[in-house]
Amino acid sequence: MSSLTVAYAVAFYVAAAVLVLGLVVKIKQYATTPSPLKIPTMPAPRTRLGVVLRILREVIYFESLFKSNKWIWICAVLFHAGLWLVLARHLRYFIEPVWFWVVLVQPFGIYAGFAMIAGLVALWARRIVVNRVRYISGPSDHLMLALLVGIGFSGMMLRFVERTDIIAVKAFFLGLLRFDLQPLPAEMPLLVHLGLVITLMIVFPFSKLLHVPGVFFSPSRAQVDDAREKRHLAPWAAKLDAERDSAAAE
């Protein structure tokens, strides 16, 4: 086994562990930190089901962003929808036999790659051209876009310019999943593509990509409008009630 294969295999294991553990820690933190008060952005749904639908609308078609700014919305949809299709297309490298719907998605996945890159480039252009967005952008915001564009671009290279040995790549990933290392083709574009993906997996739980779990926990979106009907009390705030009631009893 080449040292390159071993290095990439180890890197993938480490990256996967960082990604999963990092997200678990963060999600646990979000799930367990109390909300002292009811703060849904009103008007808000009055039932749990309504809240689930509100969040689904937020996640699937970016409802608030749509209200806000059509340009950002279009770019964001291009990028995110493209990304999902591309990810779906990539599933075939990790499963055997390949599921039917993953086969179906294959041709769309390629167009989606273009959509994703177009969306990213447009978002990046906004960051540079629109003075308000330029003002709020920091180095990490540009680097994140560079990373994502790099992944998309190197991926497209593999498909259209330097076609890689897909069979071998798939064997490598199936091997990773089965803890049975298979050689990784030593091709530059492939190594760049995978290296960038590893980087993304590692920075994910430490970066603004935390918006992915965050959107599900945002109290302004995830709370039900039922403050008058149900008493909402954070455990730490209950102490204050006890003090109040004992003072009143005296």
Binding site: L65, S68, A76, I136, H211
Partner: peptide, 22 residues
């Protein structure tokens, strides 16, 4: 941060999209 979920989530989640800027 330990007492208020909103603070945690909001401080982590902003992607600097600029939608709120105007």
């Amino acid at each position: 941060l330990g007492k208020n979920k909103a603070l945690r989530v909001y401080l982590d989640s902003c992607v600097k999209c600029g939608a709120c800027t105007d």
